[in-house]
Nucleic acid binder design. Structure first.
Length: 287
DNA sequence: GAAACGTGGAG
DNA sequence: TCTCCAAGTTT
């Protein structure tokens, strides 16, 4: 029911995102999915284009120095994703003949690839039928299917089953519906102010039928940022990315007044492989 | 399962 | 200004 509404709507209204163009390879889709994890489309677009130009295949990225990869990642956030994507590229080059696997289990075995990304690559990179469950899809299902105002905490198995039940049997059609479900959540069935006027599914939506009741379940805890290690790590990484080479302790000391927190964060960056200490005691992005 | 993990734009 | 949140994954 939903699928029959979503497919034609998406076919006509899909945003022209660069990674959706027909010439995009599964590798390009994988890179886009890594970048889009918790990061808005608008910020990903230019970075993705640059990566595709520089590293058109997994082996090309795998051959690049860590420092280049981290600098090219820029300020997308969560730079551990860049590390994992770099590592995933190496695994694909070495274990899969430089070809992104289409099998969900093989994809999920890659660093940084979880349940969502594996299925997204299978669906959008290979046109396969795979239940793609992200925050958009969970919200659309919560409303249109369950009549709830919003999605509650993730119920991984049940969420997968819900979406699986919506997908048509045919691979190509299911892949379009999967993209359409995400698109619907991204541009129509949004978190803040859903635009039910103009929603292709409104006539079949359980939430609309119920009078759009407010969400009553548990709220997702909003994570603070100011003053956290995350902020300090970000500032340290910004210094390391911006510098052409190793920087002295003083340059890092300048980013945060609390020496204890600063040192803890610097240490965690070293542990995460996001930074290295040189022989002379300075710090830099890893080679 | 909770908590950690960046960044910046929108309302 | 300040809160919320944007195609999640890992530990």
């Amino acid at each position: 029911m939903l699928a029959e509404r979503i497919h034609p709507w998406f076919s006509e209204h899909a945003r022209d995102l660069p990674w959706r163009r027909p010439e995009t390879t599964p590798w390009g889709v994988l890179v886009s999915e890594f970048m889009l994890q918790q990061t808005p489309v608008a910020r990903v677009e230019p970075i993705w284009a640059e990566w595709m130009r520089r590293w058109p295949a997994p082996s090309a990225l795998a051959a690049a120095p860590r420092a280049d990869v981290l600098r090219a990642w820029g300020k997308l956030g969560y730079p551990r994703r860049a590390i994992r994507l770099h590592d995933a590229a190496a695994a694909i080059a070495r274990e899969h003949g430089d070809a992104v696997p289409s099998d969900v289990d093989a994809l999920e075995a890659l660093p940084g690839v979880g349940s969502y990304t594996a299925r997204a690559v299978a669906a959008f990179g290979f046109g396969l039928r795979a239940p793609v469950v992200d925050t958009n899809v969970r919200r659309v299902v919560a409303r249109a299917v369950h009549g709830q105002g919003d999605a509650g905490p993730a119920r991984t198995r049940a969420d997968l089953a819900d979406v699986d039940a919506l997908l048509p049997p045919d691979d190509a059609t299911a892949a379009v519906v999967s993209a359409g479900l995400m698109e619907l959540g991204a541009v129509i069935c949004t978190a803040r102010a859903p635009r039910c006027t103009g929603c292709p599914v409104a006539a079949d939506c359980a939430w609309v039928a119920a009078g759009r009741p407010a969400y009553d379940g548990p709220r997702k805890p909003v994570q603070g940022f100011a003053g956290t290690d995350r902020q300090v790590r970000g500032k340290l990484m910004d210094v390391l990315r911006s510098a052409p080479g190793p920087v002295g302790r003083s340059a890092l000391d300048a980013v945060w007044p609390d020496a204890g927190q600063r040192d803890r964060c610097l240490h965690s960056l070293l542990v995460d492989g996001l930074a290295e200490q040189t022989d002379d005691g300075r710090f830099a992005l890893p080679a």
